[in-house]
Simulated assay, not measured.
Amino acid sequence: MADAKVIPFDEDTRTRRGAPRSRGRAAARKTGGDTGNAVAALPVEDRTVRATPRPAEPADAEDVVTASAASEGAEGAADGSEDASAGTPGGPLAAALGSAADRLLGGPWERRVAHGLSFLRRRITGDYEVDDFGYDEELTDQVLMSLLRPLYESYFRVEVKGIENIPAEGGALVVANHSGTLPMDGLMMQVAVHDHHPAKRHLRLLAADLVFVLPLVNELARKAGHTLACAEDAQLLLERGEVVGVMPEGFKGLGKPFSERYKLQRFGRGGFVATALKTGVPIIPCSIVGAEEIYPMIGNAKTVARLLGFPYFPVTPTFPWLGPLGMVPLPTKWTIQFGEPIPTDGYAPEAAEDPMLVFNLTDQVRETIQHTLYKLLVQRRSVFF
């Protein structure tokens, strides 16, 4: 595997050899295969969302329960069960799941089980949708967020401030500091926006090339809504009215030594500012405290990193000395603060070509995040409390 490198945000992906592309056309009804690779294969101008209407049947658990209660007698249901099973996509297993959901009546626990069976049936039959970046909203909401939420609420005990600064609708660019050896901060920020914003908005993170070449990680990242950190993808998402998250420090921030914690690295050449100017969306500075200490990086095994094709190979007080146990993060107390928006709609789109303006706005965003980090650190009572 080639050495991983920090990919500038505004670098055209068409000039990079071997970089996965998130541009392409994805089927609205997922039937299998590698969504990430299918999406990466087609050019930007070919992106279209092809939606197929779902069958006219109860869409959720409560509808399933209601439909079951309204059926006329057990004998009529038994007579039609064989035909329903034969015509159900996915075969007898999907039909059995549907029948089990139909029979579950009563309290909230039964409705929850029925909802889970209904969800499982849709996954088996392929009756769900993804967008042309591979984003699977249903899987993200019901599975991925549920897996991250205990870590967010009970382990890191994340406190969120300023969530109202993210607009309820329309595009916005969230710019945050990056740290912690592994990119846990991006995932926790995604949960914060999803769970605490009144409009339950989804944060679409921009990630480096390395994310999309790792097995399993690639597929999960696509389904969670992440895409390649390039200006083309970011601009398309912002024009669609999405909330996009970017961490301009990249690997320089993620893999910095513990002695330089909470000191922001360079923000590249300001590609994220140019994209915001082109689309006229506000820039939301975001400061994250607590991630720096989950894996205190006291060394970097550069030789091992080169052999594995990683930008760095961390050495912490517990890893690699304790083996897999050393990969358990420390239970630090986190604070995520979203700052006041920096508007860009007052500039003409051509302002994105003005290097001095881009530099000044980039520096303004960076200084805002750095100042907020110092303020939160002064207010923090302890790393763990």
Rank of each mutant, 00 (worst) to 15 (best):
A114L: 07
V273K: 05
E57F: 08
D136Y: 07
Q379T: 04
T279L: 04
L117Y: 02
G290R: 06
I336Q: 00
G241M: 06
I163K: 03
P248E: 04
D127T: 12
L254M: 05
A176H: 06
V39R: 12
K375P: 00
D63C: 09
L308K: 13
D3T: 07
L216Y: 12
A351R: 11
M184G: 02
I284P: 01
D102T: 14
A19T: 11
G250D: 03
P58Q: 04
A224Y: 09
A77R: 15
L277I: 04
P8K: 01
A207Y: 09
E232T: 14
G171Y: 02
D83N: 10
L187F: 14
L214S: 06
S179N: 05
Y152L: 01
P331R: 07
L237P: 00
G170V: 02
K256G: 07
C286D: 05
P341W: 05
R16S: 05
P108Y: 00
Y128M: 06
I336P: 01
A114T: 06
F359S: 13
S22G: 15
E137L: 12
P341F: 02
L330N: 06
Q142C: 10
V378I: 14
R201K: 10
I294W: 01
E159A: 13
Y295I: 00
E72I: 14
G107A: 10
L42P: 00
A274R: 11
K278S: 13
T31W: 09
G299C: 06
E239S: 12
Q337A: 15
N165P: 08
V44M: 11
M327Y: 08
P8S: 06
T335A: 10
R112N: 13
R157A: 09
G98L: 13
L182P: 00
T372A: 10
V158P: 00
P311K: 04
L376A: 03
F212M: 01
R306A: 12
A352N: 02
T52G: 00
Q265Y: 02
L97A: 09
L105E: 13
R47M: 15
A67Y: 10
M247E: 08
R266S: 15
V217Y: 09
T318Q: 11
R54P: 00
P349H: 03
A305V: 05
G107E: 10
A168L: 11
R17I: 12
A221M: 09
V6G: 12
G171P: 00
I7S: 11
V281K: 07
K302E: 14
P324T: 02
A19V: 14
S68A: 15
Q235R: 15
A61K: 01
G186Q: 11
L148A: 15
L148K: 04
F385H: 13
A352M: 05
T344S: 07
G299T: 04
E138G: 00
G323D: 02
F385K: 14
V211D: 01
P8F: 08
R112P: 00
F133N: 04
Q190T: 12
R21H: 13
E159I: 03
V315I: 15
